[in-house]
Design a protein around this nucleic acid. Structure first.
Lengths: 189, 189
DNA sequence: TGTATTAATTGTCTTAGGGCAATTAATGGA
DNA sequence: TCCATTAATTGCCCTAAGACAATTAATACA
């Protein structure tokens, strides 16, 4: 059926009625490329499911240095997990890289659903498990792999190369655009 | 009451009966310092709660280079999340750094409890949320902070300095023991 | 308590990646 | 389609961290 239903039922089985009451709490939103969804200092109060599009999380330090910390394509979450889960101001920004469409649920509505429908917690649990595995993989890659190896990994997923400017990919793998350019040059020889 | 009860009830409220049936699935285990709990290639089939002690996750590459990817002190989980959650062979080892005590539940028992007691999923969900925030914080630190800043962070938690050899802390913050020693020397001037 | 072993430090040299600036290529509006 | 703007590449020099080896300190246990 629709993408949201697929997404929810992928993570938990619910009766038609219950599924209905879950869906009612979601709203849909389309955003243009470059839209900033969350600013540093704001609390991430919504969980967004990326139905179509691409987003990045990024940090801006005092000197203006921009570092992409996460990339989110369709069928994954668009949130700042630390802020959403701890209710603390975000240290990062969230920005759409393309015209994108999301299904959004408020933090309090999500908590209410967890309380009202204990079985719906499977949704949150499995979702968090998936995000956790992804971030764990990223953290160890930053520790164990060379920039070269991390770039090679990006090459394996055309998604990254086709949809994300190199300047964002550079900081995503922990190097400067200049160094990424040289890496690419070395490879071309 | 006992530590395990505290740990479980911190994450979810259950009736005395249900709590009892959850506790029955846990077994306790005491291990000596240096005990290897999980080897590379094995599937992490148990979730362990560290009741007392310290553990590290580490990777060993072909050349024998040892990299500590995670440190777990009391009242946190001792698992290789990627292996436990995806049922894939672990790429890492788990080792006790001290004589330690754990409460352990098998993966299948945990899944069974989730099914039998939907409300118990709050336990898994919140636990995963906490682990997620911790790992996220670590991943961004590796991306945004200098080795110096990461070392300064360790200094703020005496736990690390007092209970973990410098050679493990070095790789944990992404540098060699030699570089860590120089960092420390610079600081002492 | 002495000794073997491992951990930590220090010295010297090398190198990967960063900083800055200049150039070229690509992109997106009027 | 042209032009302003931004992205990507390239050149030059510099620095932080790594590699390797030697030395000193700490530990562990017989």
């Amino acid at each position: 059926m629709d993408k949201l239903t697929d997404f929810i039922t992928y993570y938990c089985e619910l009766s038609t009625e219950l599924l209905e009451s879950v869906q009612q709490k979601f709203v849909f939103r389309t955003v243009a490329a470059d839209t900033i969804l969350l600013k540093k200092g704001q609390v991430c109060g919504e969980l967004a499911i990326n139905l179509h599009g691409a987003f990045r999380l990024f940090a801006l330090d005092e000197s203006g240095k921009d570092t992409t910390t996460w990339l989110a394509f369709e069928d994954t979450l668009v949130i700042e997990p630390a802020s959403f889960l701890t209710r603390q101001p975000s240290r990062y920004y969230i920005q759409a890289l393309e015209k994108s469409e999301m299904a959004i649920i408020k933090h309090e509505d999500l908590q209410q659903l967890y309380t009202a429908i204990p079985g719906f917690q499977a949704f949150g649990r499995k979702l968090m498990e998936e995000v956790l595995v992804g971030i764990m993989c990223r953290a160890t890659s930053l520790l164990l792999d060379t920039p070269q190896q991390r770039y090679d990994r990006l090459l394996e997923s055309p998604m990254y190369m086709q949809r994300v400017p190199l300047k964002y990919l550079a900081s995503f793998i922990g190097i400067t655009p200049t160094s990424l350019s040289r890496l690419r040059g070395r490879k071309r020889l």
